[in-house]
């Protein structure tokens, strides 16, 4: 199936989205690396669900509105989007920064959220276990530290250098990542204390060998979100839906079917 690329306008802010499939609505919120290509994970989900993958405002070629200052703003933007782009509750999947954003939205209002799937979400801090400092790593270190299975990193590192248009998008992605994640580093001190307000089915998925956000973080999510299902994925780094696609897709679909 080929995803359609469109422009989605929400209260005047234009972002790029890819959509494919039909069925229950599923919204995927990407991580700080930027808008992903059409991944096998997306392909599999779109065979069963109506999947939409937006590029966050401030990232890539989406609008970079001046009012968007932090992840709390981004979460409010997505609550607007859920209201304007959908007529029924949506299953929200968020990876890393996208998981943080989904959780920020859910503590505010779950009226339009059917379930939450958080793949290695940032957003909270386990004291004494800092995340890896992706902002000081070289580009190669950043890519290598993303994966347990280094063949994924090798493939990215062997790719031809980006053209001018892609370089602009990459630079803008890095600026957006800094805006949302620099300080406090990848978390909001005010998020953890409100996580009990998330009263929709929640599934937290973590790679056991995550070098960016150690898997010890999964336990704190489990403590704070009542009834959250936790899936620890072996032989897996910070992108479980990429590195262990088959297993993670199966687990994600199982929750979406139940919820």
């Amino acid at each position: 199936m080929t995803a359609q690329t469109e422009t989605l306008v929400t209260r005047g802010t234009r972002v790029r989205v890819r959509r494919a499939g039909s069925g229950k609505p599923v919204l995927f919120l990407h991580g700080a690396g930027g808008w992903p290509a059409w991944l096998p994970f997306f392909e599999r989900l779109s065979q069963r669900f109506a999947l939409m993958v937006p590029e966050h405002p401030s990232f890539g070629a989406s609008d970079d509105p001046h009012w968007l200052r932090d992840v709390a703003d981004l979460a409010m933007y997505y609550l607007d989007l859920l209201d304007s782009a959908y007529s029924s509750p949506v299953h929200v999947i968020g990876h890393s920064l996208g998981g943080w954003t989904a959780a920020e939205a859910a503590i505010r209002n779950t009226r339009r959220i059917a379930s939450l799937t958080l793949l290695a979400p940032t957003g909270i801090r386990v004291k004494g276990i800092p995340p890896g400092d992706n902002f000081i790593w070289s580009p190669e270190e950043a890519i290598r530290n993303r994966y347990y299975n280094q063949s994924f990193a090798d493939a990215l590192l062997q790719a031809p250098p980006p053209d001018e248009a892609q370089l602009d998008i990459d630079l803008q992605n890095r600026v957006a990542a800094v805006k949302f994640g620099w300080e406090p580093r990848w978390f909001n001190p005010a998020l953890e204390k409100w996580l009990h307000r998330i009263a929709v089915p929640t599934h937290v998925v973590w790679g056991v060998q995550d070098k960016i956000l150690p898997s010890a973080y999964a336990a704190l999510w489990s403590e704070r979100v009542a009834g959250a299902q936790i899936s620890m994925v072996e032989a897996c780094g910070h992108s479980p839906h990429i590195e262990q696609c088959d297993l993670v897709t199966e687990k994600v679909i199982a929750l979406l079917d139940r919820a």
Partner: peptide
């Protein structure tokens, strides 16, 4: 110092950075 330290993203405009 590496670029990541000298010019973290956002420190300069993307045009200046390039």
């Amino acid at each position: 110092m590496p670029w990541e330290m000298l010019l973290p993203p956002g420190y300069t405009s993307n045009a200046s950075l390039k």
